[in-house]
């Protein structure tokens, strides 16, 4: 307060106004210059990602077919511009009467990581920084404690006789905690059980990543880089179209293939046939048979996520048909 008193004492109003005006404008000019300097890195911003059109884009579930077509066309243009290739991009909806499940034969998996790389190629995930949806753990025999697993095993020859191998990817939980926590409904479960993300809606808060008990989600901490020649042009809106910096992504059981009757890329590449995929609502399908006749288990059953991804070892065992029924993972979701 002392300075105010001084001001009052020393100057008449005119004097004060003039002086404070001068000081004020000097200060304002200096402040503005400093502010501009501080914000100067924004020059390097990729402004194309911040158009009015994108700003106004609706949530996936609110888009009409024509809205969707416009968005798809825009994305095709973007892909063409960036990767010099015209993508086969569409929005593929879930089929009625289908609920997908995956079963993985732990007795067969040899830990070659071919699935990891096939997934990267199929799904246009970033090569730098590296994003991979599948993680293969090398586990000591006799334990399913994940903390005993090795993530970075690097052997000239697999499999190692003292270990078994456990690939882990998104389990498409029927009770998915990741969906529950998302503040903006950017991720949800579809009718066929797949948990998907609208990359144009995600705000990048990473709450879902904290919630997932299987560490299935990956965040684009930087702008994803995929070499032009490696782009897979077969794309779907909810799956492998190119992503942007700052959004979440994860395994979606290859929507661009499986909803059109093909098998996921990781399954096709597996040299030992450890991976089985199919429609659990069809009792004749291979997965249904496996779930019915093998010792299957799910990871971290205690967290109550009800995965659609099952593990099993080999032996068939006799069971009385009347006592068992198919493991039911219903819920279907609110697509």
């Amino acid at each position: 307060m002392t300075s105010e008193d001084q001001l009052v004492a020393t100057g008449g109003r005119d004097n004060l106004t003039r002086r404070s005006f001068l000081r004020g404008s000097l200060g304002a000019a200096g402040g503005a210059a400093a502010l501009a300097a501080a914000m100067s890195p924004l020059r390097h911003m990729d402004t194309e990602d911040f158009t009015v059109e994108k700003f106004l884009q609706k949530h996936y579930k609110e888009m009409s077919p024509s809205d969707m077509e416009a968005v798809l066309e825009r994305i095709r243009g973007e892909v063409e511009k960036r990767y010099a290739i015209r993508p086969e991009l569409r929005d593929i909806k879930a089929n009625d009467g289908v609920e997908f499940a995956y079963a993985l034969h732990l007795g067969r998996c040899i830990g070659c990581r071919r699935c990891v790389h096939a997934c990267v190629a199929e799904n246009n995930t970033s090569r730098s920084p590296e994003i991979q949806y599948i993680r293969v753990l090398e586990m000591p025999k006799g334990s399913i404690d994940l903390e005993q697993g090795r993530h970075d095993y690097d052997r000239p020859k697999v499999p190692d006789p003292d270990h078994y191998y456990m690939p882990i990817q998104c389990h498409q939980c029927a009770n998915p905690p990741c969906v529950k926590v998302c503040p903006v409904e950017a991720t949800w479960q579809e009718q066929d059980g797949l948990v998907v993300i609208d990359y144009d809606w995600c705000i990048g808060c990473r709450y879902c990543e904290a919630a997932c008990p299987y560490w299935a989600r990956r965040f684009n901490f930087a702008e994803p880089q995929v070499p032009r020649e490696n782009i897979n042009p077969n794309m779907a809106y909810l799956s492998n179209r190119p992503r942007k910096q700052g959004v979440m992504e994860k395994c979606h059981f290859c929507i661009q293939r499986t909803r059109e009757g093909r098998m996921p890329a990781c399954l096709e590449v597996c040299p030992v046939g450890a991976r089985k995929f199919g429609n659990i609502l069809d009792p004749e399908s291979e997965v249904s048979q496996i779930l019915n006749n093998k010792h299957v288990f799910v990871l971290k059953e205690e967290v109550g996520t009800l995965p659609r991804f099952f593990y099993y070892f080999d032996e068939d065992y006799p069971r009385s048909e009347s006592l068992v029924s198919l493991p039911v993972i219903s819920g279907g979701g609110h697509a």
Binding site: F50, V181, V184, E185, A186, I203, G204, C205
Partner: peptide, 22 residues
């Protein structure tokens, strides 16, 4: 902390209440 702060208003359009604690 947000990866896409420009989309903050998505909170207003589609608010996952009361399921999400956020």
């Amino acid at each position: 902390d947000l990866g896409r702060p420009d989309r903050f208003m998505h909170m207003l359009w589609r608010f996952n209440f009361p399921v999400s604690m956020l």
